[in-house]
Each structure stands twice: as structure tokens, then as C-alpha cells.
Amino acid sequence: MTTAVHFDLDGTLCSYDVPFDEQFVRTVSPYGEPTDAAYEAYLEVLFDAIDRCESEPYRRAFEAVLEITDLDATAAALAREHCETELEASVVSDDAIRVVERVAATNPTGVLTNGAGDQQRAKLERHELADLVESVIVSGDVGVGKPNRRIFERAMAALPGDDQVYVGDSYEEDIVGARSAGFRPIYVVDDPGGRNEADAADAVVSSVGDLLEPDGFPEPIRRPFEPRRD
């Protein structure tokens, strides 16, 4: 029996050592005043553009910022600099890397994430995760995002297996979306919002590093993992 394992990126494998609002301030400050209204406009348009799987969500977000500020920069330049700031603030723990290494040693392994294709892939490259996985599916590349069933079906097609497992931190996008598509979800969360959330997942862990524990993964992928069948 072959079990394919897919990981979410932001919030699951990757976190940030600089808050998002501070990242915005660092990007904008050299060009003008980083107001609360500008940050709110940035977030609203960014998340909407990511949900719509637009090809340049960061540029679209900074276009909205420039409509209400007098920043001395172009939207393209701000987007480029902000993506670099976000990338530098990204953190992947040693435990997260060990989890992916351990899973990939015996199971088909991939990353399935919402976001801009170039930016999400840059995070994987920066933290040396890209070479550990066989498949990377990003919503901005394929035109559909979680929790839509179609992006999970793309992941299944990329990593065929008798069983499909998804590890993520968002209840609606990752757990509900994965379960409805036929995956076995693993919920990464400090405290599930209620019994229904916990019951929707095959396992609940407080951090991805907890999957290093012998009972971190549900059967049949607890240590030792089953041999791969290529």
C-alpha cells in the first residue's frame, strides 16, 4: 500500500519571525508614511487576489495602497521589495525539515499551498525543501485554490497512491477541503475550535514537529513507514 503525503506551506511548514504588519512597514517606510488604512487595503486586496488565483497578487495589493497614499514608488517595485522582505522573514524549523525528510524517505511527498507561485516556490528553495519533495502544487500556478476539490485532485494526480494524507493548519481550507476530496487530514493547531474540528481530522498535533513522535501520524504511516512501491 502506497500512502502519498502532502504538506501545506504557510502556517504548517513555514512561519515568520517578523509580523506581517511590520513587514509592510519595512517595505513602505522608505517611500512614505505606512498608515493603518494603507495596510488594511493591502491585506484586503492581497487576500482577494490570492483567492482569485491572480498571477501577481502583491502588485495588485500595492496598486490599492498607491490609490490612497502618496508613496514615491511603483506598485511593481513595492511588490518586488515586499516579497523579498517576506522571504527573509520566513522560518522553517529544523523539526519541520526533519519531518519532511523522514516522510520523503519512504513515501511520495509533496507540497500543496495557496499563494503566488513564484513566492511560494522561493520559500521552498530558500529553506531547501524543494529538493525533498516530488510535487509542488501552488494555487496561483494552477488557477484554483484550497478548499476547492479540484486543487486536491491535482495533487492526487501528481502523487498517485492508495491513500492520500494532507497536513495543514487551516480548518476550512486544509481539513474540510482535504476531507471532502478524499484525503486523510492531519490538523496542525494549538487548540481545535471544538469537537467537530478535532473529529474532522485523522490526527491533531500542536506543531508539525510533533509528527516526529511515534504516534504523530495516523496509521498506516507511523514509524516505520511502509516501503515505497515505485
Rank of each mutant, 00 (worst) to 15 (best):
His6Glu: 01
His6Tyr: 11
Leu9Val: 06
Gly11Cys: 06
Thr12Cys: 08
Cys14Ala: 14
Ser15Gln: 10
Thr27Val: 14
Ser29Trp: 14
Tyr31Gly: 10
Ala38Cys: 12
Tyr39Cys: 13
Ala41Lys: 12
Ala41Phe: 01
Tyr42Met: 09
Leu43Ala: 12
Glu44Gln: 15
Val45Lys: 14
Leu46Ile: 06
Ile50Gln: 03
Arg52Phe: 00
Glu56Thr: 15
Tyr58Cys: 08
Glu63His: 07
Ala64Ile: 10
Val65Ser: 06
Leu66Cys: 08
Ile68Ala: 05
Ile68Val: 14
Thr69Val: 10
Ala77Asn: 08
Thr85Leu: 15
Thr85Gly: 02
Thr85Gln: 15
Glu86Gln: 15
Leu87His: 13
Ser90Lys: 07
Val91Cys: 02
Val92Lys: 00
Val99Gln: 03
Val99Phe: 01
Glu101His: 05
Glu101Leu: 06
Pro108Thr: 09
Asp118Ile: 09
Arg126Leu: 13
Ala130Asp: 15
Asp131Ala: 15
Val133Lys: 07
Val133Pro: 07
Ser135Cys: 12
Ser135Phe: 06
Asp141Leu: 02
Asp141Ser: 11
Pro147Trp: 03
Asn148Gln: 12
Arg150Gln: 13
Ala155Met: 08
Ala155Phe: 07
Ala155Ser: 13
Met156Pro: 00
Leu159Arg: 11
Leu159Glu: 11
Asp162His: 09
Val165Cys: 02
Val167Asp: 04
Glu173Gly: 02
Val176Pro: 02
Val176Asn: 00
Gly177Ile: 01
Gly177Cys: 07
Ala178Tyr: 03
Ala178Gln: 03
Phe183Ser: 05
Ile186Pro: 04
Tyr187Met: 03
Asp190Val: 06
Asn196Lys: 09
Ala198Leu: 01
Val205Thr: 03
Ser207Thr: 14
Leu211Asp: 00
Phe217Ala: 08
Pro218Trp: 05
Pro218Cys: 07
Ile221Pro: 05
Pro224Tyr: 07
Pro227His: 09
